[in-house]
């Protein structure tokens, strides 16, 4: 199971890096989304994938799964949701303002507005 996860995470990171290296802002944002998905899966894998019983609710279970990774992942998902949403708004605004979503065309920026 860990091997499969390792490949999935690796694939996500590869795709994320590929997308983030492109020039279109939208692709970059999708890339950051994939990157955080990969990171979340990594937490899941690092917490152990041994399929034990759920940690609370049932009495008499001695072999618990670790409850912490899911809490971490949930927190990280919420945060990446917020950041991605903000990033999308920003990308849209700058597309309106700068008339391009090509990140290399935004280079420098003019000095006159301040």
């Amino acid at each position: 199971m860990e091997i499969i996860m390792a490949f999935v995470i690796g694939l996500l990171f590869t795709a994320a890096v590929y997308l983030m290296l492109s020039r279109s802002l939208l692709r970059i944002i999708i890339g950051t989304g994939l990157l955080s998905h990969g990171a979340h899966l990594l937490i899941l894998t690092m917490g152990g994938l041994d399929g034990k019983a759920p940690p609370v609710l049932t009495d008499g279970v001695t072999d618990f799964a670790d409850p912490l990774p899911q809490a971490l992942i949930l927190t990280a998902i919420v945060i990446s949701f917020g950041v991605t949403a903000f990033f999308l708004v920003l990308a849209y605004r700058s597309y309106q303002e700068l008339d391009t979503d090509d990140i290399s065309a935004m280079k420098g920026g003019s000095e006159d507005d301040e």
Partner: peptide, 18 residues
């Protein structure tokens, strides 16, 4: 939201997301 700010902040956000 000046042009310079938008261009600069995109890099800032991207680097911090990574």
């Amino acid at each position: 939201g000046t042009k310079k700010q938008l261009a600069g902040s995109i890099k800032y956000i991207l680097i911090n997301v990574i």
